[in-house]
């Protein structure tokens, strides 16, 4: 769930006015439903299919090539390979329009994906409109992510979390998916070299800060190492937490990227070449941030708290 960079208000006004005039000519609503969680729209807009929850773009997909047109940040999840070159069992909490599911299943034949999605209508939308296939390699369960983790006996090589809720009043993490206890559940379901990848939205509003440091700090209370990959085209960042205690330097990560690039792994183009461009240290302010726990996770007020 991406967050675009802030622009001057007048550009938005202008863009809004132009959109209002032309929207009917460009965009067609293909599907609309009110689920218990969201007002869901599927819109076709100039060759691109968009999934919108409550007016916020959740997923984008090219109609010509479903493996294109996605939000850039979703590619950051693929950096999990840097820590585990034998990924095969992948758990994805949150389905949405299934960008990551499509990409992982298409690119890596050795990978099996278990998706967990809380909203049954989203599962229908993903399969009917976003080319998400349910198969032996891709199982989908309708359940809350935490409930699933608590009950499953499987172990996974990668757990991927994309459960941020973003709307016009700001972005918000589901509190029960952001606490130390939740990350302990996740760690216990990871294999020895297992990796957890967590999408967060970093907000650079003047004076305000965001949940990323608190999440990084909370992850660090459970996992020995946390790496940050800040998206270049949006405010999203993917935090990667590893069970491996050794900190890899950026030079080592670049080295591993080079090895992966020649390994025949069909990762998104250019991914390994960009490894060196990230500052992977935890977000600024992580040391001072609050560890979120089941007992105390004021996710709604993190902005104010970290000021």
């Amino acid at each position: 769930m991406p967050d675009r960079q802030q622009r001057a208000p007048w550009t938005w006004l202008l863009a809004g006015a132009i959109l209002a005039v032309h929207a009917s000519a460009w965009a067609a609503v293909v599907f609309e439903a009110q689920s218990p969680y969201h007002h869901i729209l599927v819109i076709d807009d100039r060759g691109r299919r968009v999934l919108s929850f409550d007016g916020t773009q959740e997923t984008r997909m090219s109609l010509q090539d479903p493996l294109q047109g996605h939000f850039g940040y979703t590619e950051l999840f693929h950096y999990a390979w840097l820590w585990n070159t034998n990924l095969s069992r992948v758990l994805m909490l949150g389905l949405g329009g299934g960008s990551s599911q499509r990409s992982f299943l298409h690119r890596y034949p050795q990978v099996r994906v278990q998706s967990v999605e809380i909203d049954p209508i989203v599962v229908q939308v993903a399969t009917n409109f976003f080319q998400v296939r349910i198969s032996d390699r891709h199982r989908v369960q309708v359940e809350d992510g935490r409930v699933f983790l608590r009950r499953t006996r499987e172990t996974y090589d990668l757990i991927l979390l994309d459960a941020y809720v973003k709307h016009r009043y700001g972005s918000q993490i589901p509190q029960h998916l952001a606490t130390r206890e939740f990350f302990e559940l996740a760690r216990d379901r990871l294999s020895t070299n297992g990796v957890l990848a967590y999408n967060v939205i970093t907000v650079s509003r003047l004076g305000g800060r965001d949940a990323a440091p608190a999440l990084a700090r909370t992850l660090l209370s459970v996992f020995p190492q946390v790496y940050t990959f800040q998206a270049q085209d949006s405010l999203n960042a993917v935090l990667i937490a590893t069970r491996s205690a050794r900190r890899l330097s950026n030079a080592e990560l670049v080295q591993r990227g080079i090895q992966l690039a020649t390994s025949g792994l069909n990762a998104p183009p250019g991914l390994w070449q960009r490894v060196g461009s990230y500052r992977t240290s935890p977000p600024a302010g992580t040391q001072q941030a609050l560890v979120l726990t089941d007992d105390f996770a004021p996710v709604e007020s993190l902005d104010r708290r970290s000021r």
């Binding site: 218990p36 809350d144 992510g145 589901p174 029960h176």
Partner: peptide, 12 residues
């Protein structure tokens, strides 16, 4: 509600 979410999640 927060207490229930620990085990039941925050489903509707």
């Amino acid at each position: 509600m927060r207490l229930l979410a620990r085990d039941f999640g925050s489903s509707f």
